[in-house]
């Protein structure tokens, strides 16, 4: 019973635990480096009405564009490779070579080629998320049993209908999972990228506050990042709940 309640209010529950830790650290260190949570939260709500909101929106915009581009490219290439084993054989080794490279190392090069502005930052995040989505899509298509293809073909489905009823629904939940993982990474990378040649973005905001030794503002910025993450993750959860009810049932079954 208690356990059920905890899972129902798990976001609140999680926030409470983090708050307790935060207070504990605040009292242990007794330093301005770790400002007290209530002052930070108060500062957050003041700032979010003004400049912090702009910084957050700029970051969100960069992530969203990158996600959309990666989804389009990653899904099409992934579907193509998953359905055409011939090409997959030749292209996969290339992907495996490029996949593990820390793409952030390319930031200087990207900045030289694509300029210092938004483009280079968006491209950096795109190439990070892209691989994740591509490989996930390819593998989930490959994992589809031949029988499912036979069964839908025997019902008379054409190519488009096979995509609509079989391939897309099969890939979709796995795509959400890979988005969850890659968005975490992309926020972290964006934070780093926003330290260069920009005056907007949550990364800039935090490092700027740090440089000005304004720890309360810095923490308000960190709070903003974590809310940004929370928002995106909840959005993905919502999509999964609405569109992939069956996945939940399958997970229950496995327990």
């Amino acid at each position: 019973m208690i356990f059920k309640k905890i899972t129902k209010y798990k976001t609140i529950y999680g926030s409470l635990i983090i708050l307790i830790f935060w207070y504990a650290l605040h009292f242990i260190f007794k330093s301005t480096i770790i400002p007290s949570p209530h002052i930070t939260i108060y500062e957050f709500f003041i700032l979010i009405k003004g400049k912090l909101l702009i910084h957050i929106l700029v970051s969100l915009f960069r992530i969203l564009i990158a996600v959309i581009i990666s989804l389009i490219i990653g899904m099409s290439v992934g579907l193509f490779l998953g359905l055409n084993k011939k090409y997959d054989k030749y292209i996969s080794p290339m992907i495996y070579l490029l996949y593990p490279i820390p793409k952030i190392a390319f930031l200087p090069i990207l900045m030289i080629i694509f300029g210092l502005g938004n483009t280079s930052k968006i491209i950096l995040i795109t190439i990070i998320i892209l691989f994740q989505i591509l490989v996930t899509t390819r593998d989930s298509v490959k994992g589809l049993s031949k029988e499912l293809f036979y069964s839908i073909k025997s019902l008379g489905a054409n190519k488009i209908q096979i995509y609509r009823h079989l391939i897309i629904p099969a890939v979709f939940p796995k795509l959400l999972t890979s988005l969850r993982i890659s968005i975490g990474t992309s926020i972290a990378v964006l934070f780093f990228a926003e330290n260069f040649a920009t005056r907007y973005g949550i990364g800039y905001f935090i490092m700027d506050s740090w440089a000005r030794v304004d720890y309360i503002q810095m923490f308000a910025g960190i709070l903003a990042i974590s809310f940004l993450g929370l928002l995106i993750f909840k959005l993905i959860d919502l999509l999964e709940d609405k569109l992939c009810k069956w996945i939940k049932l399958e997970k229950l079954e496995q327990k």
Binding site: S145, E147, L148, Y150, S151, I152, K153, S154, L155, G156, A157, H165, L166, P169, A170, C244, W246, E250
Partner: peptide
Amino acid sequence: ENRKKTGLILQNYGLLPWK
């Protein structure tokens, strides 16, 4: 392929898990 009036029932049923 896809003759309109042939029904096929597969060894492992072939039901789509998401429907």
